[in-house]
Every structure is written in structure tokens, then in C-alpha cells.
Amino acid sequence: MRRLLIAALFAIAGITLAAADDGAEREARWKNVAGDIFGERPIEDGRQLLKLNIPEQAMDAALVPVSVEFIGDRPIAVVSVIVDNNPMPLAGRFRLGPAFARQDLKLRVRVNEFTLIHAVAETDDGRLYAVSQYIRAAGGCSAPSATASADVLARMGKMQLRRDRSIDPSLVPSRLLISHPNYSGMQQTASGDYTPARYLERVTVSVGGVNVFDMDGGISLSEDPSIAFTYEAKGNAEVDVRMQDSSSSQFAQHFDALQ
């Protein structure tokens, strides 16, 4: 409840800022962000490859659902989700492996102020394609953790893998739930101090020893990250997840094959 109230206050305050956030400013911001992430590489219209689904206005700016839908059958090697106006815009860069199935990729992000969110695909020939959508939300990067600090430390790094059955038994729709505060460095404690940034830097998922994806993360990824994807069952169909955060802590978990 406290998080929702703070996010709402930031959203109200952000209306004034949004009035001056016209299309030219958004384009200029994107040009700077894209240059930092992709250098001088040209970025083309990606509407024939991707569809980005996000709410027009978020109920909770610290837990904004993002869905990237793959269109057509053109091979895509990497997908990046970018929150343009966040202090650290890159929420997740997914390097897709042989066991990744071309279904929707979903995650949750923080949104610090009214902004464009971009999804950028890199095809196997190295070309870049982008789609974007504007969202009205604010305060997500500074919203306090919803979990007491002692509980955070006790469960940090624990994971759940929720899997569903599909008509095609070789395809396994899944949701990876990760216990990690993904501290942004912008959150204040009750004493007024700032909690140091500590966020997921890398998440690797494999099935039967075959890579599903490698994700590079940052502070724009939400607290307790949730990543939904579909994998192709390979080898013994057992799933392994490995993670590292910005404090160099490493976590790993093994999941037996879906019975």
C-alpha cells in the first residue's frame, strides 16, 4: 500500500514534467540512449518483427509488466528492453539460445518517470529493429522495497520455475521467479539513508545443457524479477539457472524435468 501511494504521488508530480515531454524531446532522448547502448549502429522500424505490450498507465511504477511478442519467423539473436528515461535504461538484454522457443517474452520493470519503453531486436545478420510505446508512470526506481530487509537477505537468490503443459509436449511455457531486491541505489531507508545499489547482472537458463537465454540486467528490472518464456525441451529436459548480481554473489538452482 505504501509503495502504491508513493508511486501515485510521483505520478501526480510527473504530470507537469510530462507536459513538456513532447515528441522531439522523446526522440532526442532515445537517440542518446540508443547511442550509449548500440553505438552508431542504425536502428530500423521493428514492427514487422516485434510487438511491445505495456500498460498506458501503470498501477505500480515499480512493477510494470512488459511483454515482447515475436512476429513472423525471421531469426532473432538478441532482444533488449529499454526504459528510456530511467537512470540506467537497459532493463534486460536477452541473448537467445537454441532452446528458446519463439513465444512471448515477459518481464517486470521499474519506471522512474513518464517515458518511452523500447524493445530492440538484433537479427542473426546483426541488424537492429526497434518498437516503442509510451507509458505514464513515475517513482518506480525510488519506491521502497515491499519486503523487510531481514527477509530479503534470508531468501535472496531463491528461485521458482512454474511450468505449464502445451499441446506440443516439446514446448514448455515457463515463468522464472527470482527472490532478489534488485536495489536501485535510489531507495531511502526509514533513517533517510540510501540503500546501496545491488542488482542482477546476469541470469543464464539452460535445459538439458542447451542454452535458453543469457540475460544482462540492471536497476530497471523490478524487485523480485519475474521472467516468462517458453523453452524447447532438450536432452534430459532438466533446467539449470545460474545468476550473478552486482556484488559478485552467485546463485544456482536445478529443476528436474517436467513430469
Rank of each mutant, 00 (worst) to 15 (best):
F94D: 07
L153G: 04
T123H: 11
G140P: 05
I82R: 05
A77S: 10
L161C: 05
E69D: 13
Y134K: 06
D73R: 15
A146S: 11
I135L: 01
E69N: 10
G97K: 12
D104Q: 08
A143T: 14
P89F: 05
L116K: 04
L63H: 10
Y134S: 02
L63V: 04
R165Q: 13
V79W: 00
L105P: 09
V66T: 08
D73S: 15
D151F: 08
F100D: 05
V111Y: 00
S149I: 11
A154S: 15
D164S: 13
T147S: 08
V79Q: 00
V68T: 06
G92R: 02
F100G: 05
Q103S: 14
V78Q: 15
I76R: 06
V78M: 14
A77T: 07
R162Q: 13
G157S: 10
T147Q: 12
F100I: 06
D124F: 12
Y129S: 12
A121M: 05
R165M: 13
A77M: 09
D84G: 00
F70V: 09
L96Y: 07
F94L: 06
I167E: 15
A143H: 03
T147G: 06
R165N: 14
F114L: 08
I76G: 09
G157C: 09
V109C: 01
R110K: 15
K106E: 10
I76P: 04
Q103G: 13
V81T: 00
Q133W: 01
R102Y: 04
R162P: 05
R136D: 13
K106Q: 09
T147V: 15
R93T: 03
L107R: 04
P98I: 10
A101N: 07
A119K: 02
D73P: 10
G92K: 01
R136F: 14
F100T: 07
A130Y: 02
G97I: 14
A119N: 03
G126N: 03
G97T: 13
G97Y: 10
V120F: 03
D151V: 13
Q133Y: 00
S145H: 15
